[in-house]
Computed example of a mutant assay.
Amino acid sequence: MDTYQKVTATVKRLIEAFLLVMAVVVFNFFLIQMAPGDPVEVIVGEMGGASEELIAQMRAQYGLDRPVLEQLGVYVGKVLTGDLGYSYYFNTPVTQLLLQRLPATVLLVMSALVVAVVVGTLAGTFSARKPDGMGSHVVTVLSLVGYSAPVFWIGMMLLILFASIWPIFPVSGMYSMRRPDGIGYYLDILHHLVLPAVTLATIYIAFYSRLARTSMIEVLGQDYIRTARAKGLPEGKVVWKHGLRNGLIPIVTMVGLQFGQLFAGAVLVEAVFNWPGLGRLAYDSILRRDYTTLLGILLFSAILVMIANALTDIAYRWIDPRMRKVKA
Rank of each mutant, 00 (worst) to 15 (best):
Y4N: 10
A9G: 11
A9L: 15
T10S: 14
L14K: 12
A17F: 15
A17C: 12
A23L: 06
V24L: 06
V26D: 07
V26S: 11
V26R: 13
F29Q: 09
I32N: 12
M34P: 07
A35T: 14
A35R: 13
G37R: 11
G37L: 14
P39F: 13
I43S: 02
V44Q: 03
G45K: 04
G48P: 04
E52F: 12
E53Y: 12
I55R: 10
Q61E: 11
Q61K: 09
P67M: 00
G73M: 09
Y75C: 05
G77D: 10
G85L: 12
T92H: 08
P93F: 12
Q96S: 10
L97T: 05
R101N: 07
P103Y: 07
V106Y: 08
L107K: 01
M110K: 04
V115A: 02
A116L: 06
G135Y: 01
V139M: 10
T140D: 13
M157L: 07
L158V: 02
L158M: 15
P167A: 05
F169R: 00
P170E: 04
P170K: 01
S172M: 15
Y175H: 02
Y175K: 10
M177G: 15
P180E: 13
G184L: 06
Y185P: 08
Y185W: 15
I189M: 03
T199L: 00
T202Y: 00
Y204D: 04
I205P: 00
Y208C: 00
S209C: 01
R210L: 04
R213C: 00
R213M: 12
T214V: 15
I217Q: 12
V219T: 08
L220G: 11
L220H: 09
G221H: 11
R229S: 11
K231F: 01
P234I: 06
G236E: 08
K237I: 07
L244M: 10
G247Y: 07
I251R: 05
M254L: 12
L257Y: 13
Q258F: 14
G260N: 07
L268Y: 05
V269C: 02
A271F: 06
L278P: 06
R280F: 14
Y283K: 05
Y283V: 14
D284T: 12
S285A: 04
R288F: 12
T292C: 08
G296L: 14
L299W: 03
L299N: 06
S301M: 13
S301Y: 04
A302S: 14
I303A: 13
L304E: 07
I307T: 02
A310L: 15
A310N: 07
T312C: 11
T312W: 11
I314L: 15
D320G: 11
R322F: 02
M323S: 09
K325A: 08
V326M: 09
V326G: 07
